[in-house]
Design a protein around this nucleic acid. Structure first.
Length: 466
RNA sequence: GGCCCGUUCGUCUAGUGGUUAGGACUCCAGGUUUUCAUCCUGGCAACAGGAGUUCGAUUCUCCUACGGGCUACCA
């Protein structure tokens, strides 16, 4: 049987990193076993849910490359269905109305010290309840949890998990305004969507027995459950805003590729069973398996993310990277340069780049004359005779007929030998003149690409200034 | 407080009843390079603690500690 899984974010914020990982494992699981991946928007919290977040989440998901097999299901459009199920639960005695107020319950709790609902409305007479109802008193609806027995399931990741019914609260399935709560909607939807495997965060482990009780009360088939370890911040606490960027769109803006995020996140709590660390979405989909998922929560490490990013970017052919860079930031290359030139620029800087946002900075001097010269570098490399050295080199250079890397290289050697100084005495100032700083690609390659005219202008500029 | 889950280098992880406990990131040293980056070589660095089972436990069991989750008219 082909599995049907779902990703069910609540639109109370943009898609966060933990959500991406949950979606990712669901997706990979579905693809691996030729199943379906569905989407559900859990917007029963009217206070915090916003349509703009739904839009953002959908956008992020599509940016990452997730395709869902059916229209996303919005919980807000299913009130009637929930009501129907709640009434059924009421009719069958599996749920009951509770007219206790929050304040009243709080008082009891303080007195008794017990965290469980005291079940004060669990066994009231029909007359009493009807009277309240007739009076239109506010009330919630609670599940009638069995007093004895226990409920257990085989978690696809964590193994057997056992819970005593006596530990489970008569939890609320409908609020006083009649709206259903999470534990109810999730069961109804998973059932109606024919979900076969519920793969979600570990924070839902203790919700699972509650939900199973609803399935049982309704006589529905219980799906398989698999819980995923949490992702933590560097301080070991659950990943949150405090730990810096957390939303998917922020990572996009930072210059990470979808594949990078997917690659890194996949490695958080899962491994392919070999030493492969850099792989794409397809690889994950072919090799994913829930039993290689860890039980231990993992710390999100930006440094390693950056490494994965640099590896991924390096893999991309230069011509394609030009497109990607332009889409990320059209201003990275100025205007009016040939595609051929851009490709060569990217080729020269590709291995010095961690994220897409590094490109512009690293490519600056390919499109502009240096606007300033690194002070420390000047101090370090600009000696008494540097102007003379540079002058004589530029004279030779202007005579050079065939402008290519090896000729320039030869000329540099020739020049250095003629005046009998170390190669660095020429190379370093050359680099400062051309780029404004002391790092970057090979000088001959750089000069070849920049062209004779540009190089001569830049030499003139720096000689004028020093 | 109660219940549940977890604990291998700083971080992500592999692994087995007997291993020099392996890899990756970071960091350090060396090589390559005019420089930076890449790359190559090497190095630092871990089985939370205590009992028990066993000829032998990092591996199995229990306890403790620590961390996380749930305990909402949030999801």
């Amino acid at each position: 049987m082909n599995p049907i899984v779902r990703f069910a974010p609540s639109p109370t914020g943009q898609l966060h990193i933990g959500g991406v990982r949950t979606a990712l494992f669901n997706y990979a699981f579905a693809k691996k076993f030729k199943g379906s991946f569905l989407l559900r928007i859990e917007d029963t919290d009217k206070e915090r849910s916003k349509d703009e977040y739904t839009e953002q989440i959908l956008e992020s998901l599509s940016w990452l490359g997730f395709e869902y097999d059916d229209e996303p299901l919005k919980q807000s459009s299913r009130s009637d269905r929930y009501k129907e199920v709640i009434n059924h639960l009421l009719d069958t005695g599996n749920a009951y109305r509770c007219f206790a107020s929050t304040e009243e319950l709080e008082k009891i709790k303080q007195k008794s010290g017990s965290y469980l609902y005291p079940r004060i409305w669990r066994d009231r007479s029909k007359e009493e309840v009807d009277a309240k109802l007739l009076n239109e008193d506010e009330h919630t609806i609670r599940m009638r949890i069995p007093v004895d027995g226990d409920i257990s399931f085989e978690d696809l990741v964590y193994g057997e998990i056992n819970t005593k019914c006596s530990e489970i609260d008569d939890f609320i399935i409908a609020r006083s305004d009649g709206s259903p709560t999470y534990n109810l909607t999730v069961v109804v939807d998973d059932n109606d969507m024919n979900i076969s495997h519920v793969i979600r965060g570990e924070d839902h482990i203790s919700n699972t027995p509650k939900q199973m009780l609803i399935y049982k009360a309704l006589g529905w088939t219980i799906p398989k459950f698999g819980h995923l370890p949490m992702i933590l911040g560097s301080d070991g606490k659950r990943l949150s805003k405090r730990h810096g960027a957390k939303g998917t769109s922020e990572y996009k803006d930072l210059g990470y590729l979808p594949d990078t995020l997917i690659n890194y996140l996949a490695l958080l709590g899962w491994n392919p069973g070999n030493d492969d660390e850099i792989f794409d979405f397809d690889y994950l989909q072919e090799n994913f398996s829930l039993d290689k998922v860890n039980k231990k929560s993992a710390v999100f490490d930006t440094i390693k993310l950056e490494w994965v990013s640099s590896q991924n970017i390096f893999k991309i052919p230069a011509a394609k990277l030009v497109d990607i860079a332009s889409e990320f930031d059209p201003t990275w290359c100025g205007e009016g340069h040939s595609l051929e030139y851009l490709v060569k620029v990217i080729e020269l800087i590709k291995d010095r780049i961690k994220t897409l946002s590094d490109i512009k900075e690293n490519a600056f001097y390919f499109f502009n004359h240096p606007t300033e010269y690194d002070e420390a570098a000047m101090k370090k490399c600009w000696g008494e005779n540097t102007n003379d050295i540079l002058n004589s080199f530029q004279e030779e250079l202007s005579q050079l007929d065939y402008w290519n890397s090896s000729n320039i290289d030869e000329l540099i050697d020739k020049c250095v030998n003629a005046i009998n100084v170390g190669k660095g005495k020429l190379m370093q100032p050359l680099r400062i003149a051309l780029t404004g700083a002391l790092k970057g690609p090979s000088i001959p390659d750089l000069m070849t690409l920049l062209g004779k005219e540009t190089c001569l202008i830049r030499f003139k500029n720096i000689l004028k200034n020093s």
